[in-house]
């Protein structure tokens, strides 16, 4: 019996290792290419371990191409967006979960509807809107849109979380004379911490990765985010693949740190979202 279990476990592990290799290999080749000079990028046969490794691509990405600036833009946009989403999202979720009021179902239905709508389908009127509000080629234009696109999911997540939490504490506080705002700040927000963390991470990933809107409304490199910058490294005359991948690896780092340190919350959020809808 025990031996059978060891064999079964070994087979399972072996199969998973095979699949894991396929998940990891593209990344390894990316790292390897980032370490190659242009001469070796298309050498035949292709080598996973570069024969003449160099850090030149990383140096170029960090110094010459203003990459630090794009990194900062992405960071600013992501952080402000996430803060706004958490604040506005939890306020909306609190109202939806705890109050009966006229229009509640309409608002909730809208949140669900926009959560499932293809994001590209409104890009034209959204562009016209950004144009009217003079937000084309500004960071604010990116932030506003990112908030609007990611808000429905966070509201949905937080509302669902709150709906499952008993109201006793709140009601006790209210009897003691606490206002709704006090309840929200001192009871609801602390209770919601896990859901807030999940929603923060998921919004962050979404905003950090956002490309279509960013490339549509930014013109000047000073307003570029990382995905736009990386896409622009695909040159007209030639694509310097080593540079593209060096930049990509730098861009992956914050996501990786976030992912490894907060894996639990990310997974919780993803599953909550799916099991719920």
């Amino acid at each position: 019996m025990k031996r059978k279990r060891i064999i079964k476990q070994s087979i399972l592990t072996l199969l998973l290792l095979l699949g894991a290799a396929e998940m990891i290999l593209p990344f390894l080749y990316m790292i390897s290419t980032a370490l190659k000079g242009p001469v070796y990028v298309f050498e035949f046969p292709p080598k996973l371990i570069p024969s003449d490794p160099t850090l030149q691509n990383f140096r170029t990405a960090l110094t010459k191409n203003n990459f630090g600036h794009y990194f900062l833009n992405s960071l600013i946009i992501s952080v402000i967006t996430v803060v706004l989403i958490l604040l506005l999202g939890s306020m909306m979720a609190f109202s939806l979960a705890r109050f009966k009021f006229r229009g509640r179902n309409f608002i909730y239905g809208m949140v669900i509807f926009f959560m499932t709508m293809p994001s590209m389908s409104l890009i034209v009127p959204q562009f016209v809107m950004a144009d009217r509000l003079k937000l084309v080629d500004t960071l604010s234009g990116l932030i506003f849109m990112d908030v609007a696109m990611n808000l429905p999911f966070s509201v949905f997540l937080l509302q669902g979380f709150l709906a499952d939490i008993p109201r006793e504490i709140e009601e006790a506080a209210k009897i003691d004379g606490a206002s709704n705002t006090t309840v929200f700040l001192q009871i609801i927000l602390p209770i919601c911490k896990p859901a807030l963390a999940t929603s923060a991470i998921i919004s962050f990933l979404g905003v950090w990765d956002e490309y279509v809107w960013a490339t549509t409304i930014t013109n000047s490199p000073k307003n570029w985010t990382i995905p736009v910058a990386i896409a622009s490294f695909q040159g007209v005359h030639t694509t310097n693949w080593g540079l593209v991948f060096a930049a990509s690896l730098i861009a992956i780092i914050p996501v990786l740190i976030l992912f490894i340190s907060l894996q639990k919350y990310i997974i919780k959020g993803m599953t909550a979202g799916a099991v719920k809808g």
């Binding site: 562009f127 950004a130 144009d131 003079k134 084309v136 080629d137 490339t215 013109n219 000047s220 490199p221 000073k222 622009s232 007209v236």
Partner: peptide
């Protein structure tokens, strides 16, 4: 001075003109 990649230059320019920017 704003460096706009050649591939998207014309599109961006026309969009920017329409946006008044």
């Amino acid at each position: 001075a704003v460096s706009v990649p050649y591939d998207s230059f014309l599109t961006k320019l026309i969009a920017a003109i329409s946006a008044g920017s």
